[in-house]
Structure formats: structure tokens, C-alpha cells
Simulated scan of single mutants.
Amino acid sequence: MITLKLAREGNYETVTLRLPTTPGEVGEVFATLDAATRYAGEVQITGVDSGVPSLAKHLKGADLTDPDAFDKLNRLSEKIDGMDERQRNIFSGALDAESVSSLDDALRISDSLEAYTFVPNVRSDEELGRYVAVAGQIHGDRRFPEEAWPYLDFTKIGVEYYAGHGGAYTPSGYVMRREAVQEQTQGTKSVFELYLLHGQIRYRLDLPAEEARLEAAKRSLGIEDFAQAAIYRTRCGMDPLASLLPMDCVSVEDANELARTIREMPDGDLLKYLAVLSVEQPADFPGALRLALELDDYERITEGAYEYGQSVLQRFGADEELISVIDGYMDFEQFGEDSMKEDGIRQTEFGLVRRLSSPFDGQTPVQQMF
């Protein structure tokens, strides 16, 4: 059973209504409010007693002008009456873990309690960390050796697990979506890990990700757009890329596009991208993404000065026969070194690289390599 306290907007006079109810009883309550307040403001829910701890804050904004509002409230009350204590605990946590903006949302969640996992008596990051360490093989996580427990930072373990799986803490335990667990334990090693926060909900998103996974992440966070969530931590899972990428101004969309672009790069292009990053040193993440998308404007040089001199001649129109004829009469190596300077080639730990559209500024001498 749900018991509501109702009041007219802007007034303190309240009337109690027990659910399930009838249209006649609703009419009597509205008439009582009218007589007590003499004010035509909308009727609002100001208090809820239901046996589901988090339900009150989610029902207080319910639109009671909806002609079906009390039918929906009756259905919700009947559903709660049919729940056992464990299901009520799951329902409470699921309401906090999801985005609830209407009675329809609350009813939808009440119909899908099997989509959630409940861990009793886990109410904080530290308690969750201890559970992860002690319980062992839960949801694909590896068991921590007992000898290591005295040295473990349980709070940090809990934070990491919470960030990766989302959910919500309740007075009775921890509730999370089962699909959030499955998504994060499937697939290949990620390029980026983004740790997202919306309200009290934290979520770790591994990238690249397909559209279905991105939509599931939004549902877990209770948002419609990733701009509504804060990115409070980032991690690049590829060395040495991690040391070259600026993570300022990162967004989920940009990170996913760059992760997908990097995943699809041939090995040679990845080395070229690393060389370009080390020279261009973009100021922020969008700049790094732009360089990846414009990678055709760069060339990674894998040859020495001698061969480069010959390739420059070919660029000017000389064929192999002509180059063979002048071989022995031309210092290809010196010509190659001079051409490298003119082309603005830069030396990096990933090889030589040049920009095709215009030479790099502030050249680093390359002759030290020869």
C-alpha cells in the first residue's frame, strides 16, 4: 500500500490519500483541499509512505493533472504490494540508478526488476570494495588473494567497481543493472576508459563502443545526452599513445571516434600517428582527433638519406632508368639530407615524418641520424 500526502501548490494544508483508491475518493480529497486552502494551485504530492525508501523523492514531482495519474499510482501500489522485501530493495535502488521523470518511468522499472542485481549490506565504496575482494569471481572480476587483503585499498576498489558498473547504494545494499556488468566484461581491450558521473551514479565506459552500448550507458546514467554527465577520469589503454594524447576538452563522442579510428589503423599508420602527435603536440583532445582524421596529410619516412634523395628525384619526374644513369655522378645522400631539410622532415622516436601540405615550423636537424 502507498499512502500519499497531498497539498495545493504554495500551501501547507495536507490531506492523506491511501492507494489503491477510487475516483470518488480522489474527488473527496480534492474537495477537502479546496475547502481548506481556497487556492486553485495544482495538487502536488508532498509525502509518500510505501516501504520503498527512494520512492518518495521520485513521486513528488509526478504530474497529477494527467487524467490517468491515479490509475498509474494504483497500479504502482498494487505492484509494490506484490513485492517481497528483496524486490522492494531492488526497486528502491533501481529508481535511483535510472532516470525517473514520470509515473511511466517508475512503472517501467517496477516491471523489470529481473534486470537488476542486488548485493545486500553493501552501502558504501569501502563495503563494495571488501565484497569484491572477498567474494572472488563475481561478474568476471578476479579474486584477490587473502594474503593481500591487509594491504588493499578497499575504497578505491569499490570506486573502480562502481564506476565500471553503475548502479546505486541503498540503505539495504547495492543495486546495479545486469547489462552494465555484461557490457563491460565483453569485447577486446579498450583504447579509452571514460569514467562518467551523473548525480550519484558513476559509470565506466570502454571505447570504442557501438551505438547500442552507448545507449545502454545513457540509460544507466539516467541521461539523454552525454553532455549531461561529467567525465571525472580518463585512461588510455595504449602505450605510448597515453603519454602523447592531451585529455583536455575530451567528450564521449570525440573519444569514441578517435578510438574507432585508432582501432582501424594499420600498424604503419599508427606509428605515423604517434610521430605526428610528438611533433604537432596538439593542445587538446579535439586537436588530436583532427590530426588522426587528417593523417593522409603526413608521410612517415622509413628510408635513409640516400634513398630519400632518389625518391625526391622520382617526385620531380625522374624514372628508374634516369636515376640509374646518373648513379655514380650524383651524391644522392647529400641531396637527400638537403631535401629533408627543405621538406621540413622531423625526427621522432617513431621515425621520420613530414607534413605534405606545408613543412613543419622550427625544424629539428635530421642529419644527426646519418
Score class of each variant (00 low, 15 high):
residue 2 I to T: 10
residue 3 T to W: 14
residue 8 R to S: 07
residue 9 E to I: 10
residue 9 E to T: 14
residue 15 V to M: 12
residue 18 R to C: 10
residue 24 G to W: 07
residue 27 G to H: 08
residue 27 G to W: 04
residue 31 A to S: 15
residue 32 T to N: 12
residue 34 D to V: 09
residue 37 T to P: 06
residue 40 A to P: 05
residue 40 A to K: 14
residue 46 T to W: 12
residue 48 V to S: 10
residue 50 S to T: 08
residue 55 L to E: 01
residue 57 K to Y: 11
residue 58 H to Q: 13
residue 59 L to D: 01
residue 60 K to S: 11
residue 61 G to A: 11
residue 62 A to C: 11
residue 64 L to E: 03
residue 68 D to G: 08
residue 73 L to S: 01
residue 73 L to Y: 02
residue 75 R to L: 09
residue 80 I to R: 02
residue 81 D to K: 10
residue 85 E to G: 06
residue 86 R to I: 13
residue 88 R to F: 10
residue 90 I to C: 06
residue 93 G to C: 05
residue 103 L to A: 07
residue 105 D to Y: 08
residue 114 E to M: 13
residue 116 Y to V: 07
residue 121 N to T: 12
residue 123 R to G: 09
residue 123 R to D: 09
residue 125 D to E: 14
residue 126 E to C: 04
residue 127 E to R: 12
residue 131 Y to N: 05
residue 132 V to G: 02
residue 135 A to R: 12
residue 143 R to L: 13
residue 144 F to A: 14
residue 146 E to F: 13
residue 146 E to Q: 15
residue 147 E to F: 14
residue 148 A to N: 14
residue 151 Y to M: 11
residue 151 Y to D: 13
residue 152 L to E: 13
residue 152 L to R: 11
residue 152 L to Q: 14
residue 157 I to V: 15
residue 161 Y to T: 09
residue 163 A to H: 01
residue 163 A to K: 00
residue 166 G to W: 00
residue 169 Y to K: 03
residue 172 S to C: 06
residue 172 S to G: 06
residue 173 G to Q: 05
residue 173 G to D: 04
residue 174 Y to G: 02
residue 177 R to Y: 10
residue 179 E to Q: 15
residue 180 A to P: 02
residue 181 V to R: 09
residue 181 V to F: 06
residue 183 E to K: 12
residue 195 Y to T: 03
residue 203 Y to A: 00
residue 203 Y to K: 01
residue 205 L to V: 04
residue 205 L to T: 01
residue 206 D to F: 10
residue 208 P to Q: 12
residue 208 P to N: 13
residue 209 A to R: 03
residue 210 E to W: 09
residue 213 R to Q: 15
residue 217 A to V: 08
residue 218 K to F: 01
residue 225 D to P: 04
residue 226 F to R: 02
residue 227 A to H: 10
residue 229 A to Y: 00
residue 236 C to L: 07
residue 236 C to Q: 03
residue 237 G to P: 02
residue 237 G to H: 12
residue 237 G to E: 12
residue 238 M to T: 09
residue 239 D to N: 11
residue 240 P to H: 06
residue 250 V to R: 01
residue 255 A to G: 11
residue 257 E to T: 15
residue 257 E to L: 15
residue 259 A to D: 08
residue 265 M to V: 10
residue 270 L to D: 05
residue 274 L to H: 03
residue 275 A to C: 09
residue 279 V to K: 02
residue 280 E to I: 06
residue 284 D to G: 08
residue 286 P to N: 06
residue 286 P to Q: 03
residue 287 G to T: 07
residue 287 G to M: 09
residue 290 R to K: 15
residue 293 L to I: 08
residue 297 D to R: 10
residue 299 E to M: 04
residue 304 G to T: 06
residue 304 G to V: 04
residue 310 Q to H: 05
residue 312 V to F: 05
residue 317 G to W: 04
residue 317 G to I: 04
residue 319 D to M: 05
residue 321 E to D: 12
residue 323 I to E: 02
residue 323 I to H: 02
residue 326 I to M: 07
residue 332 F to T: 00
residue 336 G to H: 00
residue 336 G to M: 01
residue 336 G to I: 00
residue 339 S to D: 01
residue 339 S to P: 00
residue 340 M to Y: 02
residue 342 E to N: 05
residue 343 D to V: 02
residue 346 R to D: 05
residue 346 R to W: 09
residue 351 G to T: 07
residue 351 G to K: 04
residue 353 V to M: 06
residue 353 V to R: 01
residue 360 F to G: 05
residue 361 D to N: 12
residue 363 Q to D: 13
residue 367 Q to E: 15
residue 368 Q to N: 15
